[in-house]
Design a protein around this nucleic acid. Structure first.
Lengths: 147, 147
DNA sequence: TATTGTTATACTCTATAACTATA
DNA sequence: TATAGTTATAGAGTATAACAATA
């Protein structure tokens, strides 16, 4: 267990990350709203677009109670963006899957998320690569140290 | 207006930022819950700790409707963490300000936000400085280019 | 007239607990 | 018995519209 650092640069980075989080989160909600989706609905739809899955798995991915997913999928289903399919292997399970319209909406939403992409254009190729490796190491993924 | 990039590294960084946002946001909610605060309540309290301000300013900072702040400050006030003060210059205005207890709670909450700090300990001083400068430039603040 | 804060309303998200249908 | 999904409930956040007090 590493001791959290309190040197000025670390605190500055923490502050900057807070700013990134606030800005990115707000932009995401706004982008979702432009497609008449709430943030939660957009997250569920985006998740299902990667792969249809049982309702319970959606809840696990989003770290919320399964009962919440019922309502969110209800609303997405009402709008024809998602459908419930039976699981041939277990009749208790319902697989939530995006419809064609849902896949299309998710794609347009993804493409409209310019916040993270646009400011990155300010950086050079080398800088983006460096940022990638630093973030990877911060997140505990494998990445070469940047000496 | 720069054209958003779609090269592999950029997309990878976007993905990583998404991960950082999701993780940081979840940790923040969790840290707030440990102090029996919702995320919104914690954000308002943290904001007021920097400086007491009119209700309307709080709404502007949090990018929500002013009517919402009424309820959030109500709940914080009920718990004795925040108080409403008259503005001597404009009797329409109410200044929301943290109580001593509120300031103390905000400080403890801030100190418990280890997520951003702890993983940074994995990086060297030079790397943290580099990360700081890259984030600064990404956010449009002044920072030296990293060649 | 315009602005500040509040109230009233409706919708969504959230957790908890109880229910059903399967396993 | 245990699990997947649902329903019912209550609390909180959100936007909208209408309102009182003040500017």
């Amino acid at each position: 267990m590493t001791t959290p650092r309190t040197d000025p640069v670390t605190l500055e980075v923490v502050e900057l990350i807070g700013t990134v989080v606030a800005r990115y989160y707000a932009e995401y909600e706004q982008a979702a709203a432009k497609h008449s989706l709430t943030g939660a609905q957009a997250r569920v739809l985006g998740l299902l677009t990667l792969e249809p899955m049982p309702m319970r798995h959606v809840a696990q991915k989003l770290r919320c109670e399964p009962s919440n997913i019922t309502g969110i999928v209800d609303r997405l289903e009402t709008r024809g963006l998602v459908e419930r399919r039976p699981d041939p292997n277990d009749r208790r399970v319902k697989l939530a899957a995006p419809t064609k319209d849902g896949i299309d909406t998710a794609r347009r939403l993804r493409e409209s998320l310019d916040f993270a992409r646009e400011p990155l254009a300010e950086l050079s190729d080398a800088e983006r690569t460096m940022l990638r490796d630093l973030l990877k190491r911060m997140l505990g993924e494998e990445a070469p140290a940047v000496p």
